[in-house]
């Protein structure tokens, strides 16, 4: 009854994904050498988010899951982002 229609990710794809992730990691380490000032954190977070999306999409097979699950995952991160923003309505203006 189960798992019949599951998608099988090939070894090669898994490996390629790893390579991309490693490159991104390297980038985030190198990028701090450039002293971007206020943008350091933004850059670090941006790269981390890209990595996060890649892990979710390929390693965690989100690409092959139902739409509803993908919406849920997106919604979760959005909700969290909103909560942070709202918290900062307080801290930013204090």
């Amino acid at each position: 009854m189960d798992n019949h229609d599951s998608h099988i990710t090939s070894y090669a794809l898994n490996f390629k994904v790893l390579l991309v992730l490693l490159i991104l990691t390297l980038t985030s380490i190198l990028v701090i050498k450039f002293h971007l000032g206020a943008f350091t954190v933004a850059m670090a977070l941006l790269l981390a988010s890209i990595k996060c999306t890649i892990v979710l999409t390929y390693f965690m097979h989100l690409k092959f899951e139902s739409l509803i699950l993908r919406l849920m995952v997106g919604g979760i991160f959005l909700l969290f982002a909103i909560i942070i923003v709202i918290t900062f309505i307080d801290y930013y203006f204090r």
Binding site: I29, I32, A44, L45, L47, A48, K51, C52, V55
Partner: peptide, 11 residues
């Protein structure tokens, strides 16, 4: 993936 830059890479 988030902990690493936020803790180690903000030098």
């Amino acid at each position: 993936i988030f902990l690493f830059p936020l803790l180690y890479l903000i030098t």
